[in-house]
Amino acid sequence: MTFHWKTALAVASAALGLFACGGGGMSGTGASASGAMHLSLTDAPACGYDNVYLTVERIRVNKSDTAVDGDNTWSEVVLNPAKRIDLLTLTNGVLSELGQTTLPTGKYTQMRLVLAPNTGPGANPLANSIKPTGGTEVALSTPSAQQSGLKLNVNMDIAADQVADFAIDFDACKSIVKRGNSGQYNLKPVVTVIPVVSSAGMKVQGYVQGAVALPTTTVSLQLNGVPVKATVPDLNGRFVLYPVPVGNYALVVTAPGHVTGVVTDVPVTATAITTVNTLGTPITPPLATQRAITGTLDPSTATVRALQTLTGGPTVEVAWGLVEVPTVLPAPASFSLSLPIEAPVVAPYVALPASLNFAADSSASVSGKYTLEATSGTSIQPVPINANAIVSPVAFTFP
């Protein structure tokens, strides 16, 4: 199985107080100077699932990005017993503790997340499984994770006598692949490792209007068209994005049947929480007409998304193609997504505003205009489309 990774590679060592944790252990080579690594797990929204369960056995790190499973240079956090987590409970800033271990100082460039195996079709509960909305729980195929672990390329600095704190951020929606009509699902992880350099900031909060306070709504912070952190609003419309690396972002709200809402230049600092708006002034994207976009991806491990560039910038991701891998390989995968025809509404960020000033970006070069971007490995294929008219199926083929 081929894995597609998005990783956030900025890491800072912070003199944080030691966190208590259970089950942490350390193996590998020793060193006279040491620091510590603390880990937690969080999640972005899932689409079409009520539960996504993963059971974590251990997290391994190495200073070499080419180290293999049997090398004696690994250090690890061992969870004893292994921890079964429903990723969909880890939205709106919720973190699940994974543990902490002492490490020799230095730069670590490889992390592996090792999951427990599903012991058989009758196992109860299944170690790794999903429950599609309206369906029954089924096993999630994770062959690589049960052996050498899910590999993440990272850039972690461990300093002497300090704790480096990291959140492993799964994107459950993008990480689950349906295998045709077989009723089976594969784990194809999209994961970000985010440094947590402060408990006082790195957080953005606000509200969406009640009509879009639904599990199908996504609120994300994006940089150059790449979501850095995403969540779903709660039943009151409140959203919390945490942890988020320090920087300036576009806050993007997407909800089926509504136009895309964008707040530009949202600042994130390490010292304070960023409040976009209040319950009395919620983000309210207007209704929209949706256009269905379909196509194929060859190889089936490729991914596809829809980007839209606002007048004067930025570019934002509006949708991710839901990919269905054929039951029998090799064969192209199919994808589908739904895009609003009407123009997105945009407002500049203002600190503690009485209300956000949204206006439609109705430029002829924006309304209904998107770029489909397919990715396979390091290769990217962009295809411009105009959703104001019916779009023929788009076929992406990579050498």
Rank of each mutant, 00 (worst) to 15 (best):
329 L>A: 10
285 P>S: 10
344 P>E: 03
230 A>V: 08
336 S>I: 00
221 L>Q: 04
266 V>Q: 07
315 T>H: 07
310 L>K: 05
319 A>R: 12
348 P>D: 15
260 T>K: 01
295 G>E: 11
292 A>K: 15
221 L>M: 06
261 G>Y: 07
317 E>T: 13
211 A>C: 00
326 P>F: 07
300 S>H: 06
321 G>V: 04
276 V>N: 03
270 A>D: 15
351 A>S: 14
270 A>Y: 05
238 R>E: 15
315 T>R: 02
316 V>E: 07
257 G>I: 07
330 P>Y: 06
280 G>W: 00
250 A>T: 06
296 T>N: 06
337 L>E: 08
247 G>N: 08
300 S>N: 10
264 T>W: 02
317 E>S: 09
259 V>G: 02
312 G>P: 05
231 T>A: 11
272 A>R: 10
265 D>T: 14
298 D>Q: 15
328 V>Q: 12
312 G>T: 01
243 P>C: 06
347 A>R: 11
216 T>G: 10
305 R>W: 00
323 V>D: 03
326 P>M: 10
272 A>G: 01
261 G>T: 07
225 G>E: 04
224 N>A: 15
283 I>G: 07
271 T>Q: 12
259 V>R: 05
235 L>H: 02
261 G>S: 15
326 P>S: 11
308 Q>F: 08
355 S>T: 14
275 T>G: 08
249 Y>W: 14
309 T>E: 10
315 T>K: 06
309 T>M: 04
316 V>T: 10
236 N>D: 15
260 T>H: 05
255 A>T: 13
277 N>S: 03
277 N>L: 03
315 T>V: 14
276 V>M: 04
283 I>V: 14
268 V>Y: 11
242 Y>R: 14
255 A>V: 07
341 I>H: 03
307 L>H: 05
309 T>D: 04
330 P>A: 12
329 L>V: 03
263 V>K: 02
279 L>Y: 12
319 A>F: 04
348 P>L: 02
277 N>P: 11
299 P>D: 14
343 A>S: 15
236 N>L: 15
343 A>T: 10
320 W>T: 15
295 G>C: 13
276 V>C: 05
308 Q>M: 13
250 A>L: 02
216 T>E: 10
215 P>Q: 06
304 V>T: 08
338 S>R: 06
279 L>V: 13
225 G>I: 07
231 T>S: 14
237 G>C: 09
327 T>G: 12
209 Q>T: 04
234 D>N: 15
345 V>F: 09
235 L>A: 15
237 G>Q: 08
253 V>M: 09
335 F>S: 07
297 L>G: 11
239 F>A: 05
341 I>A: 10
293 I>W: 08
